[in-house]
């Protein structure tokens, strides 16, 4: 019986390995630097992770359905630049929906290519990464974008304000996580996303429109990107046209760290939120310990590669021991 108990604990640790590692890591940093666990530091980490987090929520849908989205970083730059530009031309109340429509159109294009034409998502979204970057540069004429009258607009309130002491970005991240989490876990659409990623052929045999489901996941992803762009623009009220560069990999890393599988069919919104926070705290911790910015990059990526390797190793173990 005691043997059984240790086995169960062992199995739990193996399943939740990343969470356990995270806790140990937090304790380590807290001992090294007391600032790390200060409430304002924690709040700061969550706030600065919120934009990445919002994007990761959408990518979670894409990854569970068995695809990738590497275009979210450059798409976020696009959204940010567009909304800043339109802000001065149309006013914020029109600029925001216009920007959402344009970003969703990009998502729909990717969804069409990957879902209906069944092109490889890695290739399509990698291509879109460049194409959208070019689009952004063309749109902005290569210049940075700034709101002219920064004091006279309510636009900044979204990213800078707070409700009941909760900063806007955290609030929006939290609300979106709740809505999308429930969508994924509780609605027929969510179920279909898992089915398509788990076994696409069996999903089709079950009458699930795989193409449409994949298309929808990219719409969800681009909606999240638009939201992230809005937060970014509103927080800074001005932006470089490369603001989202490289974020696609960090987003993917957060999703995988949370435990979604690159092979599709598994993962949850909650796990992704955990992944986002882990990534945020790792970077913050390394900073507080006094590591140089560029060393941080290396360490972060080592951790991410480790996580992906763990994921693949676990899956491979399963594939080699078929179940019947």
């Amino acid at each position: 019986m005691a043997d059984e108990r240790t086995k169960q604990v062992g199995a739990f640790l193996a399943r939740q390995g990343i969470l356990v590692a995270f806790v140990l890591f937090m304790i380590g940093f807290a001992l090294a630097n007391h600032r790390f666990v200060a409430i304002d530091n924690i709040l700061g980490v969550v706030r600065s992770s919120a934009i990445l987090g919002v994007m990761a929520l959408g990518v979670t849908f894409v990854v569970i359905s068995g695809n990738l989205d590497l275009s979210v970083g450059s798409m976020m730059s696009f959204s940010t630049i567009v909304v800043l530009d339109l802000h001065d031309k149309l006013g914020p109340a029109l600029a925001i929906p216009a920007m959402f429509a344009m970003t969703l159109a990009l998502g729909a294009l990717i969804g069409f290519l990957v879902g209906y034409l069944r092109l490889n998502s890695l290739i399509v979204t990698l291509g879109m990464l460049s194409a959208i970057h070019g689009l952004t540069l063309t749109y902005s004429g290569g210049k940075n974008m700034d709101i002219a009258d920064k004091a006279g607009t309510w636009f900044g309130g979204i990213g800078r304000g707070s409700v009941l002491g909760i900063p806007g970005p955290i609030l929006i991240f939290g609300l979106l996580a709740l809505v999308l989490g429930v969508t994924l876990a509780k609605t027929p659409f969510g179920r279909k996303v898992y089915a398509v990623g788990g076994n696409g052929t069996a999903a089709i045999f079950s009458g699930i429109p795989r193409a449409r489901v994949v298309f929808m996941t990219y719409l969800v992803s681009s909606f999240c990107v638009a939201t992230a762009g809005l937060l970014q623009a509103s927080r800074s009220l001005g932006s470089q046209n490369t603001v989202g560069q490289g974020l696609e990999l960090e987003v993917l890393a957060a999703v995988i760290l949370g435990g979604a599988s690159l092979l599709g069919g598994s993962g949850t919104v909650f796990k992704t939120v955990v992944g986002v926070l882990i990534l945020g705290f790792i970077q913050n911790g390394l900073l507080l310990v006094g590591l140089e910015f560029y060393v941080q990059y290396v360490v972060t990526w080592i951790i991410i590669i480790l996580a992906v390797w763990l994921d693949v190793a676990a899956k491979r173990g399963r594939i080699l021991s078929p179940i019947a």
Binding site: R191, Y194, A195, G198, N199, T201, A202, F205, G265, S266
Partner: peptide
């Protein structure tokens, strides 16, 4: 390959 999603539970 056609009938089941092995990583999903029985009910689903």
């Amino acid at each position: 390959s056609q009938g089941l999603i092995l990583g999903m539970n029985c009910r689903d």
